Amino acid sequence: MPITLPQNLPAFGVLRNEGVMVMAQDLASHQDIRPIRIGLLNLMPKKIQTETQFARLIGATPLQIDFQLIRMTEHETKNTAAEHMAEFYRPFQDVKDEKFDGLIITGAPIEHLPFEEVTYWDELTEVMDWTQTNVHSTFGVCWGGMAMAYHFHGIPKHMLDQKAFGCFRHRNLTPSSPYLRGFSDDFVIPVSRWTEMRADEIAAAGLKILLGSEEVGPCLVEDAGHRALYIFNHFEYDSGTLKEEYDRDVANGTPINVPRNYYPDDDPSRMPQNRWRSHAHLLYGNWVSEIYLTTPFDMAQIGQSSTDLRA
């Protein structure tokens, strides 16, 4: 089954050319199917790149996905055309009376700021509280995941002495988790962040760490009480995303290390190889499958109970 997207959204053509099943919204509306409704609260500056990355992963499942793009209400992006935002995104205040099977809250390049100093923090806390009544399952990514862990549990983020930047080996700590079906014991994940959340503080909050690294710490955390997953690293990244970040910093004269274990022989003149794509599809496919298995058929019941409908 396909993911439904506006036919003129840039991601539509990109994904169709990659062989991902995409369907125009007009055609999807004539199918007698209850699609899985997933929202993307996109906090990243490069909105088009980010929406394409997540649509690629969500659209690889055998279910029909109704993919909705959401933005913060008052915050205006400086890196994406206003016409694109007006045509494809709805502000949170316009969707807060609606129900969603899933919601992804992306990262944002503001990790140096205390959470409360982020200009849209008040509205974001409203979003996070809203997920408890209007969203069946929420996936917080990088800063978005840290924001959720802080908001719901008071877990602090800690600044690193140097940026965690590159492809780092991770271990599957909970092979029995339904979110890790098909996962290898050992694999790499792209990492790009200046902050971390620590294992002992996550465990003290009663949360379960599913994936972790000896070098860069916890990666994927399950918050069953809030029907949420938090991932601090970037399975969704394209093959060249770390290269783009590195080239940008070099061009701007910003001190930056060569991303570790990313280029062959750590040589930036060589083309990086993607070694995480299959696990990215596994994780997001498993998340969508769990939503499908547990979400109410009647969307009005979403948020009324955390009962596992498979029981």
Rank of each mutant, 00 (worst) to 15 (best):
A149L: 15
P190I: 07
D238Y: 08
N261S: 13
V191L: 01
R248M: 12
V141E: 01
G182H: 09
R198P: 05
D267F: 08
G240S: 11
S278V: 06
E201T: 13
D161W: 03
S269N: 06
G182P: 07
M271D: 15
F152A: 02
H153Y: 15
T195D: 08
A164W: 05
A204Q: 13
C219K: 02
I155G: 11
H151Y: 10
S137A: 09
R171M: 06
S278N: 10
D266L: 04
A251P: 00
L211E: 03
P178W: 01
L160F: 11
L173I: 09
N274T: 09
P218A: 03
D185A: 09
L220A: 13
M271G: 08
H234Y: 01
E236S: 01
A228H: 04
N233A: 04
D238I: 10
I209S: 05
P218I: 07
P264D: 12
R181W: 12
G144S: 12
L160W: 12
K163P: 10
G225F: 01
D185N: 14
T174C: 11
N172G: 00
S176I: 03
F235H: 06
E215C: 05
P178Y: 02
F183Q: 05
V191Y: 01
Y150C: 07
H279Y: 03
C219W: 01
R260W: 04
G144A: 12
L242S: 01
A149Y: 00
D238E: 15
E214F: 00
C219T: 07
K163T: 06
S176F: 04
I189K: 05
K243P: 09
W194N: 13
S192D: 10
H170D: 06
N261T: 13
T254K: 14
F152T: 04
L210I: 03
Y179Q: 04
F187D: 07
L210G: 01
I202W: 06
R248G: 03
G206M: 03
T241D: 11
T174L: 06
L160S: 11
A224R: 13
R277W: 10
E236Y: 00
G154F: 05
V141W: 00
A251G: 02
R277I: 07
R260M: 12
H153T: 07
P264E: 11
D161H: 10
Y246D: 06
N257G: 07
G182I: 08
V258K: 05
T195N: 11
S213V: 15
D186G: 06
H158W: 13
P178Q: 03
S177K: 14
K157I: 00
A251W: 02
T241N: 06
Q162L: 01
L242A: 01
V216N: 02
G217A: 02
V250P: 12
Q162S: 14
S192R: 06
D223T: 00
A203Q: 11
E245F: 10
P218E: 03
F165M: 01
N261P: 10
D186S: 15
P268Q: 04
P178I: 03
P259F: 03
H281E: 15
E244K: 15
C219S: 13
T241I: 09
Q273I: 15
V250L: 13
E214D: 15
E196N: 13
P178S: 02
C167W: 09
N233V: 05
V221C: 08
V188S: 08
C142Y: 02
E214K: 14
